[in-house]
Write a protein that binds this DNA or RNA. Structure first.
Lengths: 343, 343
DNA sequence: TTGTAGGCGTTATCAG
DNA sequence: CTGATAACGCCTACAA
């Protein structure tokens, strides 16, 4: 049904080796021969079968991306896009492996279904444990980390400093006069204890540090990370004795709708309440949210390039094994000095 | 370096055929033998090489997803997640092909690099032309459509009725008394003329129909679909003689931040302005946006299941070739009768 | 229930 | 620059 390399060879009047070379090493073939082969291929609607060549070369041209969240989360979707941008042209496919429960996690590392079936692994935003790292490395392929720890578990890695970033943006609030600040956190649910996500913990830590430095008592509101984060957050905020003058959100995806809802209830932002987020998702700039910028798409693309170098044996091109990106705060209209200053 | 099936066979004291069967057809192997093989495999850290078995069977276990937008757009990320949810457990990887320019598009269909290299193609939210359809089908694999036309170009397809949905939600505004409604559209830019996206066109059409039926002059604002949609929209709105009493947005991703910004400028929603969107992204419920619900994740999963049936030759299980989903409007707090009614 | 052996389509080696 | 041929690792008749 599908024409193979032999059919093309026959039609072009050359050997199959020449056909193969025409596509894999065009420079080794006389251009006249090349033309014959190419037009024969076109006539027969022939393309090289990746499965066959991949099998022959021993590579798989598949990359695994490991994560414990939905592939459609802002962070993952951006990472995926960055990876794909680099890997796709190089002929690699990316398989997204979602590991939700610690049970799934255990099974995954136990059986390692990707062994021999991927050329590299990208671990995105989770911390792998002391015994999982060697397990991954036993596959003998590059293991890359994006916002993942511990760094020394990876062939290459890139991350932002969640602690520092949240500390800095909290300091910003403190600098302009806020002392009544609430941090809204998504703590680990029982289901996710010991699970992969850790940025949350680090960001809370950064908030606490900034408060401690300023001798402020850190107020932290815990809400479940589900579809009702805004309702939960509002409920807990309204339950306080008084509204804080500033709110620090774990993520923009909470801060953005929270802004809308607070305004709906008559709170002016930033006059009555300042609010900051974390991530700099597209909406943040549109609604004027002060936040910490990160660019997961670029992180994905960067890591993909490094991994590609490793796969091509160009290890010397990977000058940086572990890159820690600087925190960038983006100041927009959602923060201002507290009104109480005017008293 | 990596142990192959022969090593396992040797260690387990069986033939390679038995090892192969242990993994592919466990029921054909005596459980005692199976145990030997499994433990030998575990000892040698062996897994079946997908590349090799895939090659042998002639399948590729890769699925192509074609689209003309970023893979990280809400719609695409959701579709991908739905597809992956079904395809991943079945052993298929999904490769996302982004076709941005009509030049890329032409090249893609000309060379069809995925020929022989994918087992199925998923075409998401674009219309393929009369000559592209047969080209795709010449690959002899299932071609599936999600929000794509023409329906008869696909082996299976699923879509929502963009025209009807936008018509209905516009009617809702009209029913509660609005006659001064603006539709904010992202028309085709010169770059994307003849390109893949068509929902935009259909939604605008639905709006116009509803207006026509009510003998209202449709007011349509065109803005470029870039990173500044909210600014662009606001600018054009403020440029009107007067604010409309209701705004119809092409997508929630415009409506959500627009709500925030309008509130910031003192407009009360829904008292001063009603606003509706389209998609029902996560934020829509959080900020209380009346909108048209669609669930691309589910659409992806549904199509993936149908495609899987086709791939398994279970054609009889695919009872519905082309499914048109009902439009569902979700009424939330962003719409109310216009104030002018009170006059 | 298990073993033998041929073949899947390509690439790489080596000779010409 | 081109051709012949041996792998690559697994799967599946078919035979035992």
């Amino acid at each position: 049904m599908q024409n193979n390399i032999e059919d093309v060879a026959k039609l072009a009047g050359v050997s199959i080796a020449t056909v193969s070379r025409t596509f894999k090493h065009p420079d080794l073939v006389a251009s006249k021969t090349k033309n014959k082969v190419v037009s024969a291929a076109k006539e027969l609607d022939f393309s090289i079968s990746r499965s066959a060549s991949v099998f022959q070369t021993g590579q798989t041209y598949r990359i695994a991306m490991l994560n414990n969240d939905r592939s459609s989360s802002w962070f993952n979707a951006e990472i995926y896009e960055g990876l794909n941008q680099v890997f796709q042209p190089a002929g690699y496919d990316i398989a997204f492996y979602q590991i939700l429960s610690s049970n799934e996690r255990h099974k995954f590392f136990e059986n390692l279904p990707i062994r021999r079936n991927v050329d590299a692994v990208i671990v995105a935003s989770f911390n792998i444990s002391r015994d999982e790292a060697p397990r991954l490395h036993s596959m003998n392929v590059p293991i890359a980390g994006i916002n993942a720890i511990p760094e020394d578990a990876f062939s290459v890695s890139i991350s932002i400093d969640d602690v520092e970033a949240m500390q800095l943006i909290t300091k910003h609030l403190i600098s302009i006069g806020h002392r009544d600040i609430v941090f809204i956190d998504f703590p680990s649910s029982p289901k996710t204890v010991g699970m992969l996500h850790f940025s949350a913990t680090l960001r809370a830590k950064g908030f606490k540090r900034a408060c401690k430095d300023a001798r402020i008592n850190p107020v932290i509101i815990d809400i479940p990370n589900d579809d009702h984060i805004v309702d939960s957050a509002l409920a807990k905020l309204f339950a306080l004795d008084h509204m804080p003058t500033a709110i620090c959100c774990q993520q923009d995806s909470l801060a953005v709708p929270l802004m809308t809802c607070l305004r709906q209830f008559g709170y002016r932002i930033p006059e009555d309440i300042s609010i900051v987020g974390f991530d700099d998702i597209g909406y943040a700039s549109q609604v004027g949210l002060t936040t910490v910028h990160q660019n997961p798409k670029e992180m994905g693309a960067t890591i993909a390039e490094r991994v590609l170098h490793l796969l091509n044996g160009e290890n010397e091109k990977v000058s940086v094994k572990h890159e820690m990106l600087d925190s960038q705060i983006v100041f927009r209209g959602s923060t201002a000095p507290p009104r109480t200053e005017n008293k």
